[in-house]
Design a protein around this nucleic acid. Structure first.
Length: 696
DNA sequence: AGCACA
């Protein structure tokens, strides 16, 4: 942006305006993020029109283009942003021109430095931008596609689940897909921007796990999911783009036929998720069971990574290439991979939050072969096992970082202090409180012994005959609304806390009527019921499958001398003195000998007892076959707990809406449709986190 | 913001 360019733009747009390009501020940090763009100006210019009417006309020209699509700057892919200038800039422009101060002024803002936005009153004010990262985009996805999905979330509904009403994100004004500077090809990720922070937060929650299915006839459906990872809030400085439609044109879905119209529209938009030859792109492959783990700390090795994912189901293998900051977890069953992606998104592992998406396509025949291999049931209670990982991490963080022997090559120790930094001490203490402890356990030297004991206990429990019994409350409910309120202020789990806040005020979600919303009364009952369950069962349950499913490649138990990866790390003994946890019920099996006589957490409860392995599957199962309803309820009841532990469940709202609930049977989507689409298609995922905003 | 290995 220089004055000459601005003048050309004015000529092009037939604007009669004076141009002023401010110099770059000294602290032009944001510009630095633009890479090669060595800015010697502020990245915008101020246009001074002859009067308010002319300025208004220009604003309209840019912000309400007749094409309906956001304008870009001439000869540039940058969004064309025109907004009222703040008074100080207008004054500065006027002073520079040594002319009378104009009634109005506008700025052209092609960069991502701070800019301005009219508040509609003729008063200019700084606008803040709140963005989210959206990844795993099909290469052809356009900015407007992204905006369209957020402005009309119906386009993003997956049709293998009951429709869910998501209020349009009216403040979603733009999206920016990052392009390769050389080839101009999409890099597969971008940023969706909101001018309203609440929309940003809501998008992270409500768009999470969303699948946009184009509606195929008999072809394999392409689908898109939007899932959220947790990240710190983007800094406020940014752009409030005016581009794009200014008001959402949204009609709530009506009868089924209307729904299909939307799906047809969705297909038009998202059809680019089907390859040029009609083939499914990567993650629509129903045989793809590989979870790509991004953002992986180099400290995390394969066995460690495995412990975080094995609770979700049988794992074929785990691969962590060296030096790649990523990993691959291939499940036997797609449904397990899918749930793992949903539940573990943003989970802190090894000190950083992992970003999950589908792995790229694999050899299908290999997958078929794999599908026939030994199958182990998975549990919907998997999340609690992962929560266990968080618990262990918390305890470790509070207690002494253990001088653990390393189960993996030195480059990848199982547990290091660095790995535990994903959880703050406050959070760890919080966890302990949640478990009924009055405070953190005093440091204890018991680690290796504890490991041994734990392993022994584990072996014993493995040798015990299987038992099934109802979950018993073992810990008094500590998960209260008051707790929540306090915890909402806290760090990395903020997002999840907001989820919880959202949950406890269902009206916030159901305020807009939709034929797809549950009956408010029933919904209230459902929530109440769930909350009651949460209180009754807010104990840490055993992560059965964490143990039960390890045999795929753990033919032998880990030797006690080997460190436990987070999910299996025994509980240090030091906290026993302050333990307030009631003794386990007689039927509760206990793993982890740390709390003598007062086992706090793990209740061995093998999954096979509920789900005898009677039905081998012929291929990775992405279908709805999940645990029994009771288990599902148990799983749900764990969510409050797990949520604060590990942000495992960003998705409860969806489950409340579309789970196996009585009212969900009233879904206008025929079941057969769900099954059909589920059996024939997988998903392509977008992945969402907060956008990283250039530091001011 | 990252996709290995066969």
């Amino acid at each position: 942006m220089d004055a000459e360019y601005a003048r050309q733009v004015c000529a092009l747009m037939r604007w009669e305006a004076r141009v002023w390009v401010p110099a770059a501020p000294d602290d032009s940090g944001p510009n630095a993020s633009g890479g090669s763009q060595a800015a010697n100006n502020a990245g915008y210019c101020v246009l001074t029109f002859g009067g308010g009417a002319a300025a208004n006309a220009a604003l309209n020209q840019v912000n309400n283009p007749s094409t309906g699509t956001p304008m870009t700057m001439p000869n540039s892919a940058r969004p064309f942003v025109l907004a009222w200038a703040p008074a100080n800039l207008a004054a500065a422009a006027a002073a520079t021109a040594s002319a009378p101060s104009p009634a109005t002024a506008s700025s052209i803002q092609p960069t991502t430095t701070s800019t301005f936005q009219s508040n509609g009153n003729g008063h200019a004010s700084y606008a803040k931008e709140y963005s989210i990262f959206v990844g795993d985009l099909a290469p052809e996805t356009s900015n407007s596609d992204l905006v369209a999905v957020f402005r009309n979330p119906v386009l993003g509904l997956r049709n293998d689940r009951a429709p869910k009403f998501i209020r349009p994100f009216a403040s979603c004004k733009s999206a920016k897909i990052m392009l390769d500077p050389v080839t101009g090809v999409s890099r597969g990720y971008g940023f969706v921007r909101f001018t309203d922070e609440a929309d940003q937060q809501r998008a992270l929650i409500e768009m999470h796990g969303l699948y946009c299915l184009s509606r195929p006839r008999h072809q394999a459906p392409a689908s898109v999911s939007v899932s959220a990872a947790i990240a710190g809030p983007a800094s406020g400085a940014g752009v409030g783009y005016f581009s794009g439609p200014t008001d959402p044109v949204y009609t709530p879905p009506g009868p089924l036929t209307e729904e299909w119209k939307h799906h047809a529209h969705a297909r038009a938009i998202l059809g680019n998720l089907i390859g040029p030859n009609g083939e499914q792109l990567t993650s629509t492959d129903p045989y793809n069971t590989t979870v790509f783990v991004g953002g992986l700390s180099p400290l995390v090795g394969e066995e460690t990574l495995r412990t975080f994912f094995v609770p979700f189901g049988e794992i074929h293998y785990v691969k962590v290439p060296v030096g790649k900051h990523c990993g691959f977890v291939q499940f036997v069953r797609k449904a397990d991979a899918e749930r793992a992606i949903e539940k573990m998104q943003g989970f802190p592992v090894g000190g950083s939050r992992i970003r999950l998406s589908w792995g790229r396509s694999q050899c299908k025949s290999f997958c078929r072969f794999r599908a026939w291999s030994l199958l182990t049931s998975c549990s919907d209670k998997a999340a609690q096992a992962a929560a266990q990982a968080a618990q262990a991490a918390a305890l470790q963080a509070v207690a002494v970082p253990p001088p653990q022997p390393q189960p993996e090559p030195p480059a990848a120790p199982a547990i290091t202090p660095a790995m535990l930094t994903g959880m703050t001490q406050e959070q760890a203490i919080l966890l302990l409180q949640k478990f009924g402890l009055s405070g953190p356990p005093s440091p204890s030297p018991v680690h290796s012994n504890g490991s041994a004991h734990a392993a022994e206990g584990f072996q014993q429990s493995q040798q015990q005959p299987q038992q099934t019994q109802p979950q018993q409350p073992t810990v008094p409910p500590t998960f209260t609304e008051d707790n929540l309120k306090v915890r909402r202020e806290e760090g990395p789990f903020l997002h999840n806390e907001q989820r919880n806040a959202y949950e406890v005020s269902p009206t916030s979600a159901g305020s807009t009527f939709s034929p797809f919303s549950p009956d408010p009364n029933q919904r209230g009952q459902q929530l109440q019921q769930t909350q009651n369950q949460s209180q009754q069962q807010s104990s840490l349950h055993a992560p059965p499958d964490m143990l039960g499913t390890r045999r795929d490649s753990y033919s032998a138990l880990p030797h006690p001398s080997k460190a436990y990866a987070p999910g299996f790390f025994p509980i240090p003994n030091g906290g026993s003195g302050s333990a307030k946890i009631p003794a386990a019920t007689p039927t509760t099996r206990v793993y982890g000998s740390g709390f003598a006589g007062s086992p706090p957490s793990l209740q061995i409860n093998r999954y096979q007892a509920h789900h005898p392995q009677t039905q081998p599957i012929s291929r990775p199962n992405s279908g709805p076959a999940r645990g029994s309803e009771r288990e599902r309820e148990e799983f749900d009841s764990m969510h409050d707990l797990n949520g604060t532990l590990a942000s495992l469940d960003l998705d409860r709202e969806r489950e409340l809406s579309v789970g196996d609930r009585p009212w969900s049977l009233r879904s206008p989507l025929p079941k057969s449709v769900s099954e059909e689409s589920t059996s024939s298609g997988g998903s392509v995922q977008f992945q969402m986190t907060m956008g990283r905003t250039p530091s001011p």
